[in-house]
């Protein structure tokens, strides 16, 4: 949850700066309201500018702005440790992230956990941009399954380039929300796209969001420190059920996660996921 930590730190720093500035201006205003009101018997100042003071103030502003720029750029860097280098190094070493393909659609989500190894085969085969076309079929199936009254969400395995993938989806109606299951302590890499309009995946507890575009895949990584369940929402206006396009982010222990993935890879369609 490095995003959450960085967010908290940057928010604290900027809130302190903002509060100091606000209080300074407020104090100056209140002072004027009392001491410079017409009834206080003072005349207006005849000085209409103070060039030296203004230049010193300008210099101070430039220094503050420069400091803030450096600080915020560093914070952005801390929030994305490794950046693209990590993506390039994926597959080798112990830092290989857990990959989840997320597809947003009007108006719910689909989470696909590719079988280990299969994902990379798919990736090197025809690249991530070929995925939406294949997902259109999956989502249609998801709609069908949910409308057919599969209870609270569905999770089932699907063939993806010769390997089974664990998939969860739902229709985000009547409390049937899909669940994005991730392991704690391991880096999770989200590959995010959309089937129709622009959506945005937002988990407020992670203090992070990323837009989901059709015909484009956005990737980002995060880690969850502790087990638990948090709400996720769509943050980009996407039509009539935008307000209801929610999901659960559920973090379980790595062992439990591996069990969950293999179970859903083998079982095929099952009802009642971890919603």
């Amino acid at each position: 949850m490095e995003q959450r930590r960085v967010f908290a730190q940057v928010l604290t720093v900027e809130t302190v700066i903002a509060s100091v500035v606000f209080l300074l201006v407020l104090t100056a205003l209140l002072y004027s309201l009392i001491r410079r009101r017409a009834g206080a018997g003072v005349g207006p100042s005849p000085r209409s500018e103070r060039p030296r003071l203004e230049v010193s103030y300008l210099a101070a502003l430039v220094v503050i702005a420069a400091g803030l720029v450096v600080y915020t750029a560093s914070a952005n860097d801390w929030m994305h440790p490794g950046g693209d280098a990590q993506a390039a190094g994926r597959g080798g070493g112990k830092a290989a992230p857990v990959e989840v393909d997320v597809t947003a659609f009007q108006w719910c989500w689909k989470f696909t956990h590719p079988a280990p190894g299969a994902h990379q085969a798919a990736r090197s085969g025809h690249g991530p941009d070929a995925r939406p076309a294949a997902d259109a079929h999956h989502a249609a199936e998801a709609h069908h399954a949910a409308d057919g009254g599969h209870g609270s969400g569905g999770a089932h395995g699907q063939r993806s380039d010769g390997a089974r993938a664990a998939t969860t989806t739902a229709n985000c109606r009547d409390g049937r929300l899909p669940t994005l299951v991730v392991p704690t302590g391991r880096t999770v890499r989200i590959n995010l796209t959309s089937l129709d309009v622009i959506h945005s995946l937002w988990v407020p507890a992670l203090r992070y969001k990323m837009d989901a575009f059709p015909d484009h895949t956005n990737s980002f990584t995060f880690t969850v420190d502790k087990e638990g369940r948090w709400i996720g929402r769509c943050a980009e206006f996407c039509g009539d059920r935008h307000h209801a396009m929610e999901f659960w982010l559920k973090a379980v222990s790595p062992e439990e996660y591996d069990d969950w993935v293999s179970q859903h890879q083998q079982d095929g369609p099952t009802g009642g996921a971890a919603a």
Binding site: Q3, F7, F22, V25, L29, L68, T72, N76, S200, K209
Partner: peptide, 29 residues
């Protein structure tokens, strides 16, 4: 007179939303 402190709140929070590390969370909220 009310413009001065009130707009200042808009301006100072503007620096926050101009900071990517904060904006990822608060944008579109």
């Amino acid at each position: 007179l009310a413009f001065i402190p009130q707009f200042l709140i808009g301006g100072l929070t503007g620096i926050m939303v101009g900071t990517p590390a904060l904006d990822y969370h608060v944008t579109d909220s």
